[in-house]
Design a protein around this nucleic acid. Structure first.
Lengths: 336, 336
DNA sequence: CTGAAAGCGCTTACAG
DNA sequence: CTGAAAGCGCTTACAG
């Protein structure tokens, strides 16, 4: 029942001008008589005319869209994706939309749906890759894709020689250390992957350790045991940590999902938070504010992250070069 | 530094065939010699050739993409979007990708970025609209858009005469009631909007009420007071409810975000969960599993929801007609 | 300031 | 089974 979509020729006929004039008027090209322009706009509105983006993009060789791929864990249920990536997706969408661009999203997890040709097929002008760094096959695929000319920008430098953007992790680690020390905690621990291929967790740990060293302190470093997901890892890590070091007074967890598990683990061990043990996470995910008590965390400026990723992918911002850092802040809530 | 993207003419030259043959071979049209097809595929691979989607879509008049718009609260931070919608977005992405379609996403909140012309501009073959029902201006805009011929399918029937798909809310309400009664609770309450323009919350309440009536019981109906978001509403609602009805033994909240607030509110009143008060939510969001205790909830089958929304939007499933219900199940966790 | 025409890179009906 | 050619709906250099 769909009526044939009107073309610029239909608008031209109705406005009594040529098709070229319709195109110029609608793109607000300079040098179109104001009255003509109004007549065209009028006719277009009456017909419900909208420019065909395929014809337009084909001609202009630009689609004004960004492709965003989110790497998932293999077999992972979509609702189990780390909420941090959904929040990042939202901020990328905002930055994209602010430029009048469209956003194409793709969740990828295995050979069955790996894809990196969004730019080459003309579908997008640039590609951004975010998501879990634990999917080795996915990152190998994207490393190979880059080698064969598919360019992209990613979040968090998951190994490889990628263009990346990430939080100011070191400063975040320092903020966590300083806050814990300022509130009187001395026996501290860092819970996070110690041998991750990516640098993010290392940076958080190093910033934490360096700031503590300035106070003559050294944290216990706890590697979370393998488990179903970050949350489960956090629970197990906290239990083991408190069993081995009953005197721990403060914990800095490498991410909020891990921290939420640690929170549960601390409670499981019969300790109170923040009374017995203070806790600080990293990411600023919404679920942290819903925890009991609400999670104190290091929060990256997500709006800045979305904008910087898009700018860098589009290469239209000389300042958004490799290694730019997204500012973070300490969000003091209930756990520390 | 980007080399000119190769076209089908380049592939044709390299394979020693005509451009039309390249197109046929790559689209696996019938009636192409196997050996020719292999030679073309070979040449395409060597050149890193990928079909230009704009040229292809222009010709085929189909883009094989779905547009998904998510309505946000005005002024809402992207990370504050109800996680249920992110999960739904993920399942829609999965259903879309399973068909080899692309997904274009757009978060909209105010006049500044309302847009409904994805199909008319050729960018997408169909449009799905999800998100908060509390943004009146947005739904007025989409009602007007529909009136002027922009068709779409939405989640939850937010008023208007839309094509919609929603959970089997009544059954969900019944499951909650039966579980609460089966575990010995008699003094029960429903916490949720009573005068919402949309029917979803009413259906959950009605199912709950009807099932209780069969046991000769009637719930207290508590309208959450206005507050910043659903979570804050839940906290306030639980406090007021328990102050007015100290003998309440079980609560069914209209959504998980509300339930998470109710959980906090119950604790604030010095009651234990589920010891003193049992609690059941609705939606099955991830944050519920992170609560302490983990939230018992009514969980819609999101995979089915994504698939049904896409099928209905594409009108390629005779069974996915208006009014189809997505099955729900009771997920028993810690709060009831 | 406006119009006629070429061309973006495909797909497919029409010949052979 | 394969090729030459038309045409999808735009944008813009070229004339006027």
């Amino acid at each position: 029942m769909k009526t044939l979509r009107p073309t610029s020729f239909d608008v031209a006929e109705r406005a009594g001008v040529s098709q070229s004039t319709v195109s110029r008027a609608l793109r607000s090209s300079p040098g179109v008589n104001a009255e003509t322009r109004a007549r065209v706009a009028q006719a277009a509105a009456e017909l419900g005319y909208v420019v065909d983006r395929h014809a337009s993009s084909l001609r202009l060789k630009s689609s004004e869209t960004i492709a965003l791929v989110t790497i998932c864990r293999p077999g992972e249920d979509r609702s189990a994706i780390n909420p941090f990536y959904f929040a990042l997706l939202g901020s990328i969408a905002a930055a994209t939309s602010a430029r009048g661009f469209n956003l194409l999203v793709s969740f990828q997890e295995s050979e069955a749906n790996f894809r990196a040709d969004f730019v080459r097929s003309g579908l997008a002008d640039a590609m951004i890759v975010i998501g879990t760094t634990s999917n080795r096959a996915a990152w190998d695929y994207f490393a190979a894709a880059q080698a064969s000319g598919h360019d992209f920008t990613c979040w968090g430098s998951p190994g490889g020689d990628f263009h990346w953007m990430r939080s100011d992790n070191e400063v975040g680690g320092r903020l966590a250390a300083d806050h814990l020390v300022a509130t009187g905690r001395r026996r501290l621990a860092f819970v996070g992957p110690q041998r991750s291929p990516q640098r993010q967790f290392d940076e958080r740990r190093d910033g934490f350790t360096a700031a503590l060293a300035a106070h003559g302190l050294a944290p216990v470093l706890a590697e979370p045991p393998p488990a179903e997901d970050r949350h489960a890892q956090g629970i197990a890590a906290a239990r083991a940590l408190l069993a081995a070091h009953p005197d721990i007074e403060g914990i800095f967890a490498a991410s909020d999902m891990l921290a939420l598990g640690v929170l549960q683990g601390i409670k499981d061990m019969g300790r109170s938070v923040p009374g017995d043990v203070a806790l600080i996470g990293f990411d600023g995910i919404r679920a942290g504010t819903l925890a009991d008590p609400a999670l104190t965390t290091i929060e990256p400026d997500l709006d800045a992250a979305g904008e910087a990723l898009v700018a860098m992918a589009l290469e239209d911002d000389a300042h958004a070069r490799d290694g730019t850092r997204i500012p973070v802040r300490l969000a003091v809530r209930g756990t520390a």
